[in-house]
Amino acid sequence: MTFLQRTLPLAIAMVAGLLGILTFYIPVWEEFETRSAIWFRIVFAFAMILGIHSLLHMHWTRIRRNQAGWAYSAVTVGAFAVTLLFAIYNSGAGPFAVQNLESGGLGWIYDHIQVPAGATMFSLLAFFIASAAFRTFRARSPEAAILLVAAICVMLGRVPIGAAISPYLPELSQWLMDTPNMAARRGILIGVSLGAIATALRIIFGIERSWLGEDRR
């Protein structure tokens, strides 16, 4: 059983990983690259279904066990069911026809619930960032002062009021982005890439096994 539970998955990961590397350098293997990308997409779709199931299971358990907030979980499950019904009804075409994106019910839910709710959720952050900046953004050290000055220059330079205050502000802001910011980001990018490559190699050679999950006994 250890062979099937540990050795075989590690072997699959190693073979898939080595093939993934080699296909980049061997042009005749482009067909394998295409096919493996299609397979990756299909398996990924099942992973998304797993994620959605996980969410619904959590809420369903809360309803079944009458836990605190179960009524809200019922709202989640209800909203899921209603939206899915409209999606599958597909303006009468059903689940095996081409999806009609302008589908009456689904389109309505998307335009009038999903879009405003999604946009508003993220727009809350504007208030939180202002409040957090007021409370905690202090020039306590030279480094913090550099951060503060850079932030103010960029905030003013990227909007038209900056040019109205001084024509040098947009230029300074652009130089800050093009030069010191770019240098720091490049350093981070190179460092992160080296780390990602090292982790990927560890996964392929079976040194990194956390993706296997726990062994259930």
């Binding site: 540990r6 350098y25 990602a196 296997l212």
Partner: peptide, 17 residues
């Protein structure tokens, strides 16, 4: 785990080069 092996391994392999 077999499926994860494919996703994780292939993802790692495609990423490196």
């Amino acid at each position: 785990r077999l499926a994860f092996g494919l996703i994780v391994g292939l993802g790692a392999g495609l990423l490196i080069p």
